[in-house]
Design a binder for these strands. Sequence first.
DNA 1: CCTACCGATCGGTAGG
DNA 2: CCTACCGATCGGTAGG
Lengths: 220, 220
Amino acid sequence: MPTTNERISEPRSSEVASPRRGRAHKTAAGAARRDELVMVAARHFRLKGFTATTMREIASDSGMQSGSPFYHFKSKKDLLFAVMEEGMHSALQGQEQVLATLSAEVPAWQCLHALALHHLRVLLLRPSNDFIAVMLYEQRALTEDDVKAIHRLRHRYEAPWREQLQVLEAQGRLRASASMTRLMFFGALHGTLTWYDSEQSLALEELATRFMHVFVSQPD
Amino acid sequence: MPTTNERISEPRSSEVASPRRGRAHKTAAGAARRDELVMVAARHFRLKGFTATTMREIASDSGMQSGSPFYHFKSKKDLLFAVMEEGMHSALQGQEQVLATLSAEVPAWQCLHALALHHLRVLLLRPSNDFIAVMLYEQRALTEDDVKAIHRLRHRYEAPWREQLQVLEAQGRLRASASMTRLMFFGALHGTLTWYDSEQSLALEELATRFMHVFVSQPD
DNA sequence: CCTACCGATCGGTAGG
DNA sequence: CCTACCGATCGGTAGG
């Protein structure tokens, strides 16, 4: 996928002066402060919502004064975008690692199972799983361009899903079309955010298997 | 179900003075104004979120002055609760009507199909479908007691689902346990809020059928 | 239900 | 990254 868009790749190779939205820190300490802001913001945005969270809270919980986050981020919306964008980048990375461990001839059922398990971990495993709830619930607070950028990342994330589901569809092992199955599958997975309880519910491996049996017939 | 809780049933038989959270209007015009506030609020809460919506916008779009909504509702949170509570009441009523038209011996598959279709209509058909998106996305803005009241309504709403899914489970026609199937089913249905497009997608009847084939095997 | 208003808070900025 | 601050807005209220 060489079609990375500019803003998404920009943070990794930029030298613009602060305040801005990317990572342009000369010092490791500066980058660490920025990362802390993103983490703290993700938690607050998830628990209280974007609008109900104040920059003052985020600053205070990051050990800063009220105006200091604006040294790292031009606006509150840019901080929200950073939460979603960096979350998606790390989820994409994790997914690629999972796929890399699979041999090339692994059956589609097993591959999709691995993708589902990884996604459940992204959704439910702390820490740093806050971003995805924020992404699912706070899209309307983004600018149009930022929504598009996030959608591009989500599309890349879904690419292997599309691929495996098409294989399974061709094998006659789906109960709806590949794209309909994908929409239902993600909907059901995202629903776990509202009911999964790590104390009382199944282990994620077992949960992923249950999902697979509902959406795909005949495991290999 | 005689276990209706006080606050839920209160609005229908109360005589307390305004401002309050129930319907205590002597005049039909007063009740109509209140209903308009609830409808307008639902739309705004859905499109912009609870916190980002101001009482002034709601007032203005309801043809009132900025302070007037507080004649009908003690607080913004009470208006949010009214949106969810009245939405759930009408959804419950609609569901009961659907069930009433079914004969007593209708097979479980058909009954669940009717429930799924009704739910898709509640989710996706305008007007007055805003409340459910608000309910799903804005729970954290409610007080603890209000969350409990809404959960009781949702539990009542899910009762016929539980019943039919248990029948289907006993018949060996589910791919996961009855409760797991219900959680996945609702998750997948709620996901339609993010992707269903009435212009391009299937008719809701057909969509309900596709859902049914994924979650339940062997239609009658 | 309107008028007029208050106290509090918030995103953001200048200047260092 | 801190200090000190501004302009704007907001939920809510008193009094009619």
